[in-house]
Nucleic acid binder design. Structure first.
Lengths: 212, 212
DNA sequence: GTCTATACCGTGATAGAC
DNA sequence: GTCTATCACGGTATAGAC
């Protein structure tokens, strides 16, 4: 067992709390208490509260983006010469998130909820998404353009937006689907969520983006 | 011109601030300043901060639910005897939100962002959605069951979840689609968002919910 | 009943001493 | 790296004006 450093403990505690309560819903003291370190140590390592938040967000953003790109390139290589399918691209986009959420590391599960928070926050979206994810997302948009010849670029972007929204709500794990379905579905059942999301959005893309 | 009462001014100011910054990102003092009333007046009218938040959320939730039900019933009546189409049900679900967002009342636009916040918050979703929206949403799920014979109930619920997510991100108006598309699409263009959302999700439903 | 001024007391982030 | 002091700001209760 590799014991995390105090600095890592702060990041982990902050990740969990920010994911559930958002930026303003968490105090440095709560983070320090959960991490079992002195209040002042967070500022010592990470500076202002805002900078700590950014550090938490960026820690796994890079890993995630790299992993997505890897899966996308692997699937491009696999279909040697031939065109990728729409489903392959969507799968490459979603698979790293599914793996992260299914992993035994609770940190990754917390991070998925944090990502959902940042994606849907008008304030944080603008601050964090451009540098952490947007550049990389454009590669996916490009790949989508390839497999949807004749599609208008606006149609592709709106469809990507719907995927992004469906994904964000899935990552948020609000428990609402459990209630609405009287337990027939569970927010925590990512297999169920992702297995259906791929055919759902693929069909949507084909319908909206077919060159009439 | 009908001048709003102080009590309404508080609700309006709170609505705008909560929508943008979330529950914890706003102070009673900020709300009072924006509403141009004394700090203590908010507590006088609405009690605790949490109760003010609930009051803001519930004010328009009832109007919205009633309007949705109306549109759904009207579309059921219109197709006299014959089955509704999937598209009609989805449209009935989305139309009141589109109208609210396109209205000249900035309060409604703020409320849409607040709704997005509550939908995606693990904390507030559980507190506010069951009483404000969930009962009513079940009528839509029922209507969907009618037009998708043979579909598994889990499939319908997951598809509804994706719609819900796509909708929530649209309501949030993060401006991300503007950036990603280099201005080809705008977060504020609800016509574009809704016109494509209907065929997108209809195709998704048909793909996932077809009785194999 | 509606509203304002003010006071209370806990908690926040953070700088500076150690 | 740690502990402590500082000082501003938070929600809310209360007293009294209109």
């Amino acid at each position: 067992m590799n014991t995390p450093t105090k600095s890592e403990r702060i990041l982990n505690a902050a990740e969990e709390l920010f994911a559930r309560h958002g930026y303003d819903g968490v105090t440095i003291r709560q983070i320090a208490t959960k991490a079992k370190v002195d209040v002042a140590l967070a500022s010592y390592h990470f500076g202002k509260k805002e900078d700590l938040f950014k550090a938490v967000f960026r820690r796994r953003a890079e890993i995630l983006s790299a992993s997505r790109r890897e899966v996308l390139l692997a699937s491009q290589a696999q279909s040697n010469g031939e065109k990728q399918t729409l489903e392959q691209i969507i799968e490459a986009f979603l698979l790293p998130l599914k793996l992260a959420q299914e992993s035994n590391d609770p940190g990754w599960r917390n991070y998925m909820a944090l990502l959902s928070y940042v994606m849907t926050s008008p304030v944080w979206n603008e601050i964090l998404m451009p540098t952490a994810f947007d550049i990389h997302v454009k590669e996916f948009i490009d790949a989508l353009e390839q497999v949807l010849p004749g599609a208008k670029i606006e149609d592709i972007h709106w469809c990507y937006h719907y995927v992004s929204g469906a994904l964000a709500l899935t990552l948020a794990q609000t428990g609402r689907i459990d209630r609405l379905s009287d337990g027939a579905c569970q927010s925590s059942d990512f297999d169920a969520a992702y297995n259906r999301m791929i055919p759902f959005v693929a069909a949507g893309f084909r319908e909206v983006c077919r060159g009439d």
